[in-house]
Amino acid sequence: MYSLSSKKRLWYRISLAVIFVIAAPLLILYASGYRLDDAFKLASTGGIYISAPQSGVEIYVDNELIRKTSAFQKNAFVQNLKPADYEIRVTKEDYQEWSKILSVFPETVTEAHSFLLRKEPVLVEVRSLVSAETDGDRATSTATTSIKQIKNPEYDIAIKLFEPIKTSTLKKATSTDIEKVSRKLSVLRDGDILRVTWLGNMDDIPGYFCRNEICKEEIIINPNSKIKHFDFFPGREDLIIMSLENGIYVSEIDDRSKQNVQKIVEGGGYDFRILEGDQIYIKKARQIFVLNQA
């Protein structure tokens, strides 16, 4: 039996080289978003990437269900979209709906990060006193237990969060005196609006500041109400939690279409504080609650 003939090998080489020459540009064009349109012309398309914070969330693009998220896949990437505006809807039973109209541009992925808050919040009260079992008289042969009311240290910590900041720790007081900075975003209160600006490199600016490649410097959040307190929503730099006169709300910074605003609690007299960038404590009068975000 002979070895592979040089003629056969040459034929293989030429065939594979031809495949390479044809396939390489096609693959690059495909990867860059180019597709054949209805008229068999090469057209540039774009894509949308939506992230969802939970599993079991349904993501719709123009009312077409694209994905139901799972524990392992909490986002959806849709490509082959002609440049146009698309309505995105993200829903889950018992949660408030998130929707947005996003523009798709050629060769670009338009990203958006949805958020879903419960329609009815789960508030767990933090009591000032808690019951504790204590052992009885150990000296006696019969062990007894008694229940005592003791001070709840969590309540003390939480209540301190709501104490007014001492004057000495305040920065210079101006109309835009309160500032929240999270890494590269700054949020300034200017009267009853919040001004969000990007502090970082313009190459790294979040997509919601931009339409295609044109980016703005500032986004305004206007809740149409007096803002008593605000902060970044725990774990998210694109969401602002605000206590307003009529409740506590979360607004996204993204204003590419109408900003999604979802309520946490509705009604007057609520305020909130965030402990260690994680737990949301809500206060009404002397009552303190912790928001269960699960």
Binding site: Y30, A31, S32, G33, T45, G46, G47, Y49, F77, Q79, E107, T108, V109, E111, G207
Partner: peptide
């Protein structure tokens, strides 16, 4: 990372 190319790569 905002390009389709980066998602497809």
């Amino acid at each position: 990372n905002k390009t389709i190319l980066s998602y497809n790569l």
